[in-house]
């Protein structure tokens, strides 16, 4: 699980060009959107692709995404339960 969280942090920083952040800067419970990392709706679409490409999870509803992308903790749990690759 910890490895997955680390991997997620690394990939999110890379995919979303968060060049001023390091893996250590993102805490497992930090909100990814809004006040936390400051991600927005376009980032959500980017993350949907990341889920599909890396873990074989297809989200089609951006609203569903909002729940799943609450924090690294929530996202890692969701991936563990739903991943197909």
């Amino acid at each position: 699980m910890d490895a997955l969280k680390q991997e997620l942090k690394k990939n999110i920083i890379e995919q979303l060009n968060l060049e001023d952040f390091t893996v250590e800067d993102i805490l497992d419970d930090d909100p990814l959107f809004g006040d936390g990392l400051g991600l927005d709706s376009i980032d959500a679409l980017e993350l949907i692709v990341l889920l599909d490409k890396d873990y074989g999870i297809k989200l089609t509803d951006p609203i569903e995404g909002k729940i799943v992308f609450k924090s690294i903790e929530v996202l890692a749990n969701y991936i563990t339960e739903n991943r197909t690759k």
Binding site: Q15, I42, L45, E46, V49, D52, K53
Partner: peptide, 10 residues
């Protein structure tokens, strides 16, 4: 046509 992200399109 898979795994495309919106940023470069926008």
């Amino acid at each position: 046509e898979q795994y495309l992200t919106p940023t470069s399109f926008i």
